[in-house]
């Protein structure tokens, strides 16, 4: 369980993180979204115990993380720009990890060779960016962390490799109750991964939701009536957005599915459709009221 409580961080004049609070339950995957410079990386580095926050607390299983060796042995942070010691091979890095992380699983390391078809005596610095990322995942998964913090992790991986990595991730979360924080500027990339999502904008957490909750509570409705829609139609319904396309009325409605269907059927439409929304659409409508233009926040 990761608990982030009123955390702020400044870099000189710049306030990078402003009073952020959220928690990640054990065995869940948390998606941290936001455009470049929103503060995702800073927040993650604080969770990983690299940066020290100016205000607030960050605890993992109730213990502050900064300079806490016991907790840091259970965490691995995979940054968006990877670092390996100069001129080392995969094998040498694996030896290093073996000495650093007590849960290192040598057997798993060898087993995973099947998933990552790279010669382990090759120097990492000579590899392509995508291969280096595979090496990073290989080492990370072999170290068996309880908490995994991934900063833009899927950049540079091809579609097949992405799926492999996602599979291992799911497996570890399911089997070992690994807790994952994953950041992205791309909603589609994490839509199928995360249990919970938070959007960071200019250092503040502007929205935080369970994905299932989001999806069950917001709906796209297409209806058509003879003539104008009756005025009572819009009453008793939480309409976030509406637009007419010819005689067809398109609206985004918040509420329970059955209640909405029942309400609409009552008004006897000639056409009625209840459509699912993509995550992106949900955010567009959710945040419309907050005065943010979604394209500024998500690319």
């Amino acid at each position: 369980m990761i608990q982030i409580n009123h955390v702020s961080k400044r870099f000189g004049e710049l306030e990078a993180i402003k009073d952020v609070t959220f928690s990640v339950p054990k065995g869940s995957i948390y998606g941290l979204l936001g455009s470049n410079g929103a503060g995702k990386t800073t927040l993650m580095k604080m969770i990983a115990g690299i940066y020290k926050q100016n205000k607030g607390t960050i605890t993992i299983d109730g213990e502050p993380i900064f300079e806490n060796i016991k907790q840091k042995e259970r965490i691995i942070f995979l940054p968006d720009a990877l670092y390996f010691f100069p001129h080392t091979t995969i094998r040498q890095m694996a030896d290093f990890y073996r000495h650093i992380y007590p849960k290192w699983n040598e057997e798993r390391f060898y087993k995973m060779q099947e998933l990552f078809p790279i010669n382990m005596n090759q120097k990492i610095h000579r590899m392509s960016k995508g291969m280096q990322r595979q090496v990073a995942f290989w080492l990370t998964f072999s170290a068996m962390p309880d908490v995994l913090i991934l900063d833009e992790p899927l950049d540079g991986l091809d579609a097949v490799m992405r799926q492999k990595v996602k599979n291992i991730l799911f497996q570890d979360v399911a089997e070992r109750e690994m807790t994952v924080v994953i950041s992205s500027h791309n909603l589609f990339e994490v839509e199928d991964l995360c249990d919970r999502i938070g959007i960071l904008h200019h250092g503040s957490l502007i929205i935080e939701k369970e994905i299932d909750n989001l999806k069950t509570n917001i709906h796209k409705v297409q209806v058509a009536f003879h003539g104008q829609a009756p005025s009572s139609f819009f009453q008793q319904m939480d309409v976030i957005y509406k637009e007419y396309r010819g005689s067809v009325l398109l609206c985004i409605v918040r509420g329970k599915e059955e209640e909405i269907i029942a309400h609409i059927q009552k008004h006897d439409p000639i056409l009625f459709d209840l459509l699912p929304l993509t995550l992106e659409e949900i955010f567009i409508y959710e945040m419309g009221g907050k005065g943010y233009a979604i394209e500024n926040i998500l690319i």
């Binding site: 580095k45 990983a48 115990g49 690299i50 300079e67 060796i69 016991k70 840091k72 042995e73 965490i75 691995i76 942070f77 940054p79 720009a81 990877l82 670092y83 650093i100 992380y101």
Partner: peptide, 14 residues
């Protein structure tokens, strides 16, 4: 920056 982040993410006290 990269190595500073990396080294201080390791479970070793300063």
């Amino acid at each position: 920056k990269l190595s500073a982040d990396y080294m201080h993410s390791l479970p070793i006290k300063r």
